[in-house]
Amino acid sequence: MNSEQEDLHEVALKGHLSGKIRGSQAFSYVDIDLEPGESLTTETDAMSSMDADVDLTAAFNGGFFSGLARKFFGGESLFISRFTNNTDQSRRVTFVQPNPGEIRCKTLNDETLYLQPGAYLASSDGVKLGLSWAGFISFISREGLFRLKVSGTGDVFYGAYGALLEKEVDGEYIVDTSHLVAYEPGVSLKLQLAGGLFSSFFGGEGLVTRVEGQGKIVVQSRSISGLAGWLNPKF
């Protein structure tokens, strides 16, 4: 019975790496089986357990200065961890995200995906991490001044607080600030008020992000500000 229930919560990876995303949406974790010679890059402190003979090296996140930039502007760590399997058999690495919530994997095939700061967890070789200017609009909407651009060919793992929901946008769509997790390059962001002036400031919605264009967006079903708003009056 237990093993059956676990099956319901497993998502087998179909991309470059082999492994599974396990746990429920509430507390997802990822098991990666590294083949000999394969390696995996994660943000620091993401690894929760691994086989003893997997080699770990810490490196600056793309060099000292860009690492610093990513730390301060991209919500990512200054260092990254690189796990390499130098043995001749398959070895397992398990990694997690700091917040409760769902983890997803996206396999890039010479494609680009934009991630909100803090959403990046790990990637396989062949995925390039870059920081790009997201504009002041993104900053005002509390999405950060910069966005993480992941591109190349390989698997990228991202996560957020809450369940992740995919939505195909064709035209325009409105997403509340702090609910957007990832979006494809065909989509651009604009900022607007949720309603009229009075409603926007007294209605608790404030500013919202207007998503325009064509492509997929990923939305998180909970936000930390929503959690705080529910919890704080109770303390």
Partner: peptide
């Protein structure tokens, strides 16, 4: 419920009303 909206189509209009008068203030949430 206030601040629960996460996504919506662009043709949806939002309005805040102070329905229920003062009683609303006392419910806190």
């Amino acid at each position: 419920e206030a601040s629960a909206m996460a996504t919506m189509d662009t043709n949806i209009e939002m309005k805040t009303k102070l329905k229920g008068g003062f009683g609303r203030f006392l419910t806190g949430e």
